[in-house]
């Protein structure tokens, strides 16, 4: 359930085609455009949550809990004036506004997706380059990665979460750790194969210094597969977060994320389905959009896979 799609990423890909032509090619692909457009929309929804008619997503109201979508509540302000607020998506078991929670939840869920992808790529890239280039460290790093990989990802995540105090950083770390070995393997295999290329060997013979060698020949080759891999990691991060919440070790419910809103509402699925339905739709569509973006990117960036 975690990282399966990442396995489909190609091991080695051609260097990234540069320039405007690429952007144009990407956007001409309807799948990429659709996915990217939806993600942009979600990012906007998260960023603009405070001005989209929301309430404080953590404000509880025991008197009006578990109300259906469309329920109207009179709010009395401190100066005595009253306004009517319509709970578009109903209220949850603490009387919090589901609409506000889902909109604010976009922030957390997207933050998790992006930071998990960025962190696992960064750490994986670093370790992969080291393993691929510095021979004495190759063995130890790869054995450690083998070990990490052999532990089922979800169990590793559970253990990492209980290591830290439950919260956003712990959850991010928990999802990152199991993803790292796969990135390391990918990067290492690219480094190893690129090293064999005649032009790289020539560059080494010519005495090109390591940083330049990396920047000019090796890194560009990793960009395309890493971007593709990153999208799949991002998609799986959103899902894993939901699963961790389901198991009761996710982000504490006072910070709404789509995963924990669903997890909190799961017991009420039959009586008050709105608690799981609305965040579920947002989560599902977002993961779908990320996966579509990933598929499209792979088709476009990886000539070997094009035409499918």
């Amino acid at each position: 359930m975690s990282a399966e799609p990442t396995l489909l990423a190609p091991a080695v890909a051609a260097p990234l085609p540069l320039g405007r032509t690429l952007a144009a090619r990407l956007l001409r692909n309807p799948v990429v455009a659709l996915g990217a457009g939806f993600l942009l929309l979600m990012a906007l929804v998260g960023a603009l949550a405070p001005v989209l008619g929301t309430l404080d997503p953590t404000a509880i109201n025991p008197a009006t809990r578990n109300r259906p979508p469309g329920f109207e509540r009179t709010i009395r302000a401190e100066d005595g004036t009253t306004t009517t607020y319509r709970h578009r998506m109903g209220t949850d078991s603490l009387g919090r506004d589901v609409y506000s929670r889902v909109l604010y939840g976009a922030r957390i869920s997207l933050l998790i997706a992006v930071s998990v992808a960025a962190l696992s790529l960064a750490i994986g890239l670093l370790l992969g380059l080291v393993a691929g280039y510095i021979r004495p460290l190759d063995g130890p790093i790869m054995r450690l990665m083998d070990g990490l990989m052999a532990i089922p990802g979800i169990l590793l995540a559970i253990a990492v979460v209980s290591l830290f105090r439950a919260g956003l950083p712990a959850v991010i770390a928990a999802i990152v750790v199991p993803e790292i070995p796969r990135v390391v393997r990918l990067v290492r295999s690219i480094v190893l194969s690129v090293r064999e290329e005649p032009y790289v060997e020539a560059a080494i013979m010519a005495g090109t210094r390591l940083p330049l060698l990396m920047a000019r020949h090796i890194l560009p080759n990793t960009v395309a597969p890493l971007i593709v891999q990153g999208t799949f990691i991002a998609a799986s991060a959103i899902l894993v977060e939901a699963v961790l919440s389901f198991l009761g070790i996710g982000i504490p419910p006072e910070t709404p994320s789509w995963g924990n809103i669903m997890a909190e509402g799961r017991n009420l699925f039959r009586v008050y389905p709105h608690n799981i339905l609305y965040p579920g739709i947002f989560l599902g569509l977002t993961v779908l959009a990320v996966n579509m973006l990933g598929d499209g990117l792979r088709d476009t960036l990886d000539p070997k896979m094009t035409g499918r």
């Binding site: 799609p5 799981i276 579920g280 599902g284 598929d295």
Partner: peptide, 22 residues
């Protein structure tokens, strides 16, 4: 198939239970 891995397992479970068991 893309939809298949866009939905958390427990949601699929609850849906199937609701349809086929309940």
């Amino acid at each position: 198939s893309v939809l298949g891995f866009s939905v958390p397992v427990f949601v699929i479970g609850y849906l199937l239970i609701y349809i086929f068991a309940i």
